[in-house]
């Protein structure tokens, strides 16, 4: 069990049977009165934020959550399969659970899989990844100065806006946090 003196940003706790992460923690002690911790908590699966106040010293259970590095294996019927390389245990997630991350996972990629009570619930992908463009309009030579972009489909099926000079079959680096094109990757 944690008590309020363990509270800090990033601590994962279980409240009313649900997993939350502390996003803000404020210590409040009025005058000669008892001390409190006021915390903002984000639901680890649903993302909603709640506000709770704890009397100093109150106990809170840790959330039964672990994060493991796993390799992406394959997609089957919109189900994404991952494997823990240390013990070869496999986990699966559906496309909804991946959120926007479905756009970036490719064979062999190592991602962090969050496991809540033994079940995989979400993944975190590396901040940058390189993907090949499988389709886009032909490039405009020499047009490197303007900010104009065009849509390009990459190997995972995601669509990314790229500068006009970029061509089909080229590899591009993408910031997975924003989904934005960063640069061309030389073969």
């Amino acid at each position: 069990m944690y008590d309020t003196s363990d509270f800090r940003k990033g601590l994962r706790v279980e409240i009313d049977g649900q997993p939350f992460i502390i996003v803000e923690n404020q210590f409040v002690k009025p005058g000669k009165g008892q001390a409190f911790c006021r915390v903002k908590l984000k639901h680890l699966l649903q993302g909603n934020v709640i506000d709770r106040t704890y009397k100093s010293g109150e106990k809170v259970a840790p959330a039964d959550i672990v994060e493991k590095a796993m390799q992406f294996l394959y997609i089957n019927d919109e189900t994404y399969h991952f494997m823990d390389n240390s013990d070869f245990e496999q986990f699966e997630l559906n496309k909804d659970q991946l959120g926007d991350n479905w756009k970036w996972v490719q064979e062999g990629m190592v991602v962090d899989v969050m496991i809540y009570k033994g079940t995989a619930v979400s993944i975190t992908v590396p901040n940058f990844t390189a993907l090949e463009i499988t389709y886009c309009e032909p490039g405009v030579k020499g047009d490197t100065a303007t900010n104009a972009t065009k849509p390009a489909t990459v190997e995972t099926g995601a669509i990314v806006n790229v500068p006009l000079f970029v061509n089909q079959n080229e590899k591009i680096k993408i910031d997975t946090r924003t989904g934005e094109y960063v640069e061309r990757v030389k073969a």
Partner: peptide, 27 residues
């Protein structure tokens, strides 16, 4: 305001409730 659990139970002390309101709101 969301009070802590100990302030919501019956027979809790008024001074604790007052301190809560003071610290979280009035101050």
């Amino acid at each position: 305001l969301t009070p802590s659990k100990d302030l919501m139970i019956k027979n809790c002390r008024i001074e604790d409730q007052l301190n809560f309101l003071m610290g979280f709101y009035i101050e």
